[in-house]
Design a protein around this nucleic acid. Sequence first.
DNA 1: AAGTTCATTTGTCTTGGACAAAGTGTTGAC
DNA 2: GTCAACACTTTGTCCAAGACAAATGAACTT
Lengths: 309, 309
Amino acid sequence: MNFEEHVLPMRIADVERDTGISKDTLRVWERRYQFPKPQRDSLGERLYSQDQVERLRVIRRLLDQGMRPNQVLGMDLSELHLLLDAHSSQPTDTSRHATCLSLVRLLRTHCSRELRRSLNSILIKDGLQAFITQTIVPMSGIIGNDWIRGELTVPEEHLYTEQVQNVIRHAIHSQETEDVPPRILLTTFPEEGHCLGILMVEAMCVSEGAYCTSLGTSVPLPDIAKYAMDGKYDVVALSFSAAYPSRDVIKDLKQFRHILPEEISIWAGGAGLIQKRIHLPNLAVLTDIDGVPGLVRDWRQQFLGGQHD
Amino acid sequence: MNFEEHVLPMRIADVERDTGISKDTLRVWERRYQFPKPQRDSLGERLYSQDQVERLRVIRRLLDQGMRPNQVLGMDLSELHLLLDAHSSQPTDTSRHATCLSLVRLLRTHCSRELRRSLNSILIKDGLQAFITQTIVPMSGIIGNDWIRGELTVPEEHLYTEQVQNVIRHAIHSQETEDVPPRILLTTFPEEGHCLGILMVEAMCVSEGAYCTSLGTSVPLPDIAKYAMDGKYDVVALSFSAAYPSRDVIKDLKQFRHILPEEISIWAGGAGLIQKRIHLPNLAVLTDIDGVPGLVRDWRQQFLGGQHD
DNA sequence: AAGTTCATTTGTCTTGGACAAAGTGTTGAC
DNA sequence: GTCAACACTTTGTCCAAGACAAATGAACTT
């Protein structure tokens, strides 16, 4: 029953795993910016304090949003949080906001069964598409903000993902499949482990009657391209969470557009590419998941002459 | 349409990501065992060939099964494969073996829809528990063997996970919940990302009427313990895939037993702890998922006096 | 506005040495 | 035959300071 492991100083490898910042980078930051300057054990090895790791987590997040290291590496925790608040997207205050908050409360009190039941009844009342756009999306926003602020534990965050996954997968699976084109392949790039994004998109597309195949997360670029070509897919849909390294998004998408035949459309969306302007042939960037049904209809208009509108 | 990225030499960071072997280890192996001895670019930086990475992948697998580096680091690919064959578990040749093979064939030909349909009809015919023990478990064994031999692509492996997940989650979700004790918390330790294991166990337990909560994969030890205590769970069920570092299993389980009150049972299972004898108080090690229903009944016998047998 | 150039910032890779933690094997006692 | 204690070997992780290319930002011209 010893919980002190938690507050005990962490070794550099643990910090790397926890923050996603490489050992090399941690050492070079210490050399250049005098932060983080961890204590040393009897052998001269670094021991990072809980506070330092906390700050590093926030710093990582700010870097992902486009800040530069020399701007943020001197700050203490309160300054960092101020910056974070400035950057965090304001929740669009809909009529469902209260509902979302009460769902989050269920999560906080670990009422997993009630959470799933509530989600389910909202799904049945609103229908799949409205359920996602009006409940899941704003809720994920709230959860994401709480998460980076450390107000949510790991199990709580995971429990949320699990329950939402259960409900949406069940809904998709229950759908009568029409299999009207386009054929859509859903996945994420390597290092991107968040599965809710593609799951939501899949739900939206299936609701429109499209043929969807999900490969889950973290698939190498050439593998995606090969699979899409072999299976004669019309669209590859990709999701980027806010955790996706900001500087890699454009580079990776360019490379992918290069190896994927131009006839195949790319739909990219997610918090990882807000405020990014990417111009590539046959690429659609979605700022909002609301736009997915429109994309499906536009595709049909263009390639099927619109008889399925 | 340039697929050559694939066969181009890889940088050390890529190899680390692909094989799970750290940069430091790769460099020290090169120093000590003269393997892998990659080419260098114009700046003297390491460039690993496809063959070397392939060998490293197999080596990683053999190390996970308990081999030592000095035994395997001199071998070429064919020798490594021989060793691998010796270690790979023989599939118990049941009457379902042919069915499994035909399912794998569907996977290989990328017939995702047919695969799901077939799985579903077997599920309905056999019932959830038999479906898992007689179809999913042997099939996962086949897939696992193919996977380490490189006979399966990333998308194929992911597709399998996705479809099985869909079917099992749907089944669990459809179950009428009885909520008879024990209360079971399901999850995996950090670094363990395979979700099918706990999902199968959850299905077995839900079929027995137990109250199950799944936290998904990769939860830190203290977080699991705290959640289990707060939620008054009776059992924590953990899954270890073959990819879990063999040398860490016992250490991690010991540490976890230490921070979790002894009244709470630990059930541990999965390919990651075959042929391991671990003796800890109130810990059950499952070599086979068939044993799960028995564990549930034993627990009830012991704590409820068996009136729910 | 949209390029072009130049200086600065930043992350990744290099080397060889050091050392603890884990594994192996031998011995001796029960 | 099983177990504990011991020494010996193997093995992964960490350290330091230097190097350099790729990305970024600023100042400039078109």
